[in-house]
Amino acid sequence: MIPLVINIVYFLLSLALLLAFIRLTRGPSLPDRVVALELIASIVVGFVGVHAIDTGISSLLDVAIVIALTAFLAAIGFARFLERGTQE
Rank of each mutant, 00 (worst) to 15 (best):
R80E: 00
I6Q: 07
L12A: 14
L82H: 13
I43M: 05
D54L: 08
L17P: 04
A36G: 00
S29H: 06
M1C: 03
L17Q: 07
S42N: 12
A36P: 06
V45F: 08
A75S: 06
L4I: 05
V35W: 01
I76T: 07
L24W: 09
S14K: 02
G85W: 01
Y10N: 09
L17T: 11
L18E: 00
S29E: 03
P28I: 11
L69G: 11
F21R: 02
L18I: 11
R26W: 08
F81G: 08
I22Y: 09
V45I: 13
S59F: 14
V9F: 01
R23F: 08
L61Q: 00
I53V: 10
R26D: 08
I53E: 01
T86F: 14
L73P: 00
G46M: 08
R33W: 06
S29M: 11
V63K: 12
V50F: 07
A71Y: 06
L12D: 03
V9I: 15
L73G: 05
A41T: 12
V9E: 13
V50K: 00
N7C: 08
F72A: 02
T86C: 04
S42T: 09
T86W: 14
F72S: 01
L73H: 00
R26M: 08
D62Q: 09
L12Y: 07
G46F: 08
I8V: 14
V44M: 10
I2S: 07
R33N: 05
L24M: 12
P31G: 11
Y10C: 07
V66M: 13
F81H: 10
E38G: 13
L24Y: 03
R23C: 10
T86G: 14
V35N: 02
I43C: 04
A74S: 05
S59Q: 10
S14N: 06
D54Q: 13
R23P: 02
F78S: 02
L24N: 06
L61V: 13
F21A: 14
A36K: 07
L39F: 11
T25I: 13
I40E: 07
I67Q: 04
P3D: 00
F21H: 02
V66N: 04
A68N: 04
A20P: 03
R84L: 06
F47G: 04
V45H: 09
A68S: 08
G85F: 06
H51T: 12
Q87M: 11
L37S: 15
E38H: 13
T70H: 03
V66K: 14
E83H: 08
R80L: 14
A71Q: 07
L19H: 00
L82I: 10
L13F: 07
D54A: 15
G77M: 09
D54T: 12
F81V: 03
I43A: 01
N7M: 04
G77C: 02
V66G: 00
L4C: 03
L4H: 08
G49H: 01
S29P: 05
V44T: 10
I65T: 12
V5A: 15
G49F: 06
F47W: 14
G85S: 09
G46K: 06
I40D: 09
L39A: 14
S14Q: 01
I22W: 14
G85L: 00
S58H: 09
R33P: 02
A41Q: 05
L13H: 01
M1H: 11
G77I: 12
F11G: 02
L73K: 05
L37V: 01
I76G: 02
I2W: 15
L13S: 05
L61E: 06
F21L: 14
